[in-house]
Design a protein around this nucleic acid. Structure first.
Lengths: 120, 120
DNA sequence: AGCTTTGTCAACCATCTGGTTGACAACTGT
DNA sequence: ACAGTTGTCAACCAGATGGTTGACAAAGCT
């Protein structure tokens, strides 16, 4: 559970935290401003931000008594890379299966032989 | 918590479940075969698969007493779409910021070093 | 100096999660 | 009919999670 990928996925599994990320994608914001729309306590939002920070999705600056929150968008690339890797593997597998089925079809096909290869 | 996106993110927040997805991307497999590499009980793996199924990441067939597990890769596109949306928004913001800084730089260029002024 | 603003820390609570073991259901194969 | 294989269901447990309230720290404003 200490691995980064798990933390990032877990962080984004919460609707409030996803919303925080969405809003931070537009620009930095203070904790108070971020908390305002939700009907949970400021402390709860502070905790959510700590989870996002732990996952490396967010960092905090300092401006007097304010702690502006900043989105670290590069971490999202980590997830995208993981997801795309296996999504593409699965997709490729389907295409191979299609090819095999097409080939089987060709073999049993007496009348015509369309000769249609891969359609990547 | 019942929304699909939350369930999918939560499902992939566990290393075993991510590994299951990775292995299923290569091809369907039975519960027993999937459970074999891990040192947790078969029941635990069965639970993991139920989580993946609940998230729509996986479906189950039927072959005698076996229940072959199949990866539904399209759901991964949901996550990718969400992630990319905000990653790109954040990136675009940086590029605007860069443009602004470059413009400031152009304006009072000469022999002045650009200051570390406001960034919002 | 004293009050206000902004946010964190700590303790507490209910619920969810990931694991266990034991029982049993469904289907095969002899 | 009976034993074996494959997997699920149910009860239970420890630890994490998301929320609460109350106290307090740090910085700004008069």
């Amino acid at each position: 559970m200490t691995d980064q990928l798990s933390q990032v996925f877990a962080a984004l599994a919460d609707p409030i935290r996803r919303d925080l990320v969405a809003r931070l994608s537009v620009g930095d914001a203070t904790v108070g401003a971020l908390a305002e729309p939700y009907d949970v306590s400021l402390q709860a939002v502070s905790k959510h931000l700590k989870v996002l920070e732990g996952a490396g999705l967010v960092s905090r600056g300092r401006d007097a008594q304010r702690r502006p929150v900043h989105l670290e968008a590069e971490v999202l690339d980590l997830m995208t890379a993981w997801i795309e890797r296996y999504r593409r593997a699965a997709e490729a597998r389907y295409q191979r299966l299609d090819a095999v089925l097409a080939e089987l079809n060709d073999e049993h096909d007496l009348d015509h032989h369309p000769e249609q290869g891969e359609t990547a």
